[in-house]
Simulated scan of single mutants.
Amino acid sequence: MPPEGQDIAARAAAREDGNAGMERRADGTLALSGRLDADGAAALWPRVMRGVEAGAQDGAPPAIDLAGITMLDTAGAVLVLDLAGPETRIEGAGEAERAVLDRTRDALAEAPPPVPPKPMPWLAWLGAMVFAAGRSIRDGTAFIGQCLVTALGLLRRPRNLRAADLLRQLDEVGLRAFPLTLLLGVLIGVILAFQSAIPLRRYGGEMFVPQLVGIVLLRELGPLIAAIIVAGRTGSAFAAELGTMTVNEEVDALRIMGIDSMAMLVLPRLIATLVAMPILALLVNLSGLVGMAVVMTGQNFPLISITNTLMQWLTLRDLLGGLFKAAVFGLAIAGIGCRAGLSAGRGPRAVGDAATAAVVGGIIATVVLDGLFAVLFSRLGI
């Protein structure tokens, strides 16, 4: 059978089984046939693109013949309009097909595809990063100033701080974190005792394990573990709660009603965390020492010897220094969580992004502050 007869037979088969087909005639006209719905356009699209690439030097076809199509929807209309150039004639289309083409053409003209942003040069990218960092520092400084002004205002009007909110936040931050704090403290004490006893046993220095674990817990690990617990539990909860209120415009409603949102929403959380953090750090210290004592008594060390060693080497200065660091860590974590919630956006991911920013920011702030305290205590001889 000659090629012309094969093309005619293919088009006839396409009409009968409904499959989409395409033929390029000798004069350059593209003849489409079959069902140009979503499935047909998807099946025909790779072949059309290969034909366009092969005939790119000829430009757009002079005409597109739609006489052979049996069905046309918006997916097929997009395919036809993508093939057609500004001077391409569309022939053989019925009234219904032309209506679909006109609606699709208007929709594409009203909503063009977004243009991908051009990559910024490295200097512009560096400037944008510096500008964003400066804006974040400015906003953080403004938030700290608002907190200080509101806290000083409570000295004149203490009734602005509601006791019920403060007690609720103390329950959330402190009491409900006790089980997790005790569990982690015991595990940390057990791990430190085991890992310290293994290398010290080679030199007969197992007797120094209690003082080593005690000093590490009281000065460093106790406040750090408590800070990580509060950042994961409380900082994210503050950001999620205040972020939800911001998204629902409840914070704006409080301001419209003349209620100080800082005094009502932020200060109770800051004060509760400031009070609860030293208590949580103390629980980590005590439970960690209990875990260490369990390990050491299991290695035939008498409990009275462990107690005497701790009383001999641990001082009140070690304990108070760790508790002071814990209070500062808690204040920073609560402030970062509240600021992340109040500055949340309006999109569906705003609350999740605020909670993530609160946890990450709280942990980073804790590590940075701990490094600053290490340098400060070393200089002061504490």
Rank of each mutant, 00 (worst) to 15 (best):
L152R: 14
L376H: 09
D260M: 03
L342T: 11
L166M: 14
P112V: 14
P61L: 04
A63D: 03
R202F: 11
E23W: 08
A13Y: 08
G352Y: 13
A60N: 03
A142L: 14
Q195S: 09
A193W: 05
R346C: 04
G127F: 12
T309V: 05
V230W: 08
E95P: 05
L79T: 07
A132W: 11
G222A: 01
A54E: 14
T246H: 01
A239Q: 07
A332H: 02
T29N: 01
L372H: 01
R11F: 04
R219Q: 11
R15H: 11
R105S: 15
F324V: 10
G362N: 00
L212Y: 11
G243A: 05
T273R: 02
A151R: 00
A237F: 10
F178M: 14
K118W: 04
V190G: 14
F373T: 00
G322R: 07
P112C: 10
A20I: 09
G232P: 11
W313L: 01
L161A: 08
L152M: 15
L166R: 15
I229C: 08
E97R: 09
L148R: 03
E220D: 05
A133N: 10
L331I: 11
G362D: 02
A193L: 06
P199F: 01
G68A: 11
R98A: 10
V209T: 05
S236R: 00
